[in-house]
Design a protein around this nucleic acid. Sequence first.
DNA 1: TTCCCTACTTACCAGATGGTAACCTCAAAG
DNA 2: CTTTGAGGTTACCATCTGGTAAGTAGGGAA
Lengths: 117, 117
Amino acid sequence: MLTRRKSKVESTPPMCPLSECLAIIGGQWTPNIIWHLSAGPRRFSELKDDVVGVSAKMLTTRLKKLEAEGIVHREVVPSSPPTVEYSLTDLGAELKPAIEAIVDVGHRLKLRRDAKS
Amino acid sequence: MLTRRKSKVESTPPMCPLSECLAIIGGQWTPNIIWHLSAGPRRFSELKDDVVGVSAKMLTTRLKKLEAEGIVHREVVPSSPPTVEYSLTDLGAELKPAIEAIVDVGHRLKLRRDAKS
DNA sequence: TTCCCTACTTACCAGATGGTAACCTCAAAG
DNA sequence: CTTTGAGGTTACCATCTGGTAAGTAGGGAA
């Protein structure tokens, strides 16, 4: 008895700008990575320290996805041990207000909770 | 050979307001649900229509979580077939700027993509 | 009395996610 | 020529997520 099955969870048709944006910042760690990059370019291992708890695998995965989407720029610096610098593209910089709004609300939520308890 | 294992993915210590907020709006469908609720109170089946593609199970799950967190208010209307009205609490209303910022950025991202292609 | 409606709840299961650990490349140092 | 360090990649595996489908409650309609 075959059942229809979907290859991907396709939340909402792409008519919705909310889903549009969430498709980019939706992954775990992603907002954190963008947030830390928004302060300026960072190297791989610096990012790994910034984003506490992320594994190298996830960091690579996320950075690759973000690069493919044109959100971050990847540049190999020909030093010895070669290092890699990641930075936000100007497209990526457009995400900053959204991240900042989330940070801001998170902040207010925290204050509120502390006040109540 | 036992390996240590974690009961939960505990992304970042709660010092970070970003993670604080993402813990609330992080689940799939959640931003959409909050967005649709931000326009005013809605019944269960209305929400299920608004948020295209969500299953009853997920909608219940998300609404319960949001209720437990004090983000949405649940009120049973004693009509016949009893209906249930969901609305944002004033705590929940604080999330609106974040959602709106995401929608806004999503909008700009879309325009940019359309312009480039 | 049996059906239907709203609003769930539960069992079951496929597929996506993410962690650990081992491995790879390249260049310079020893 | 082996080691070291940056920046990965891969295999393996457990957990988490979310969908389908079926069931529940309680009152009104037929």
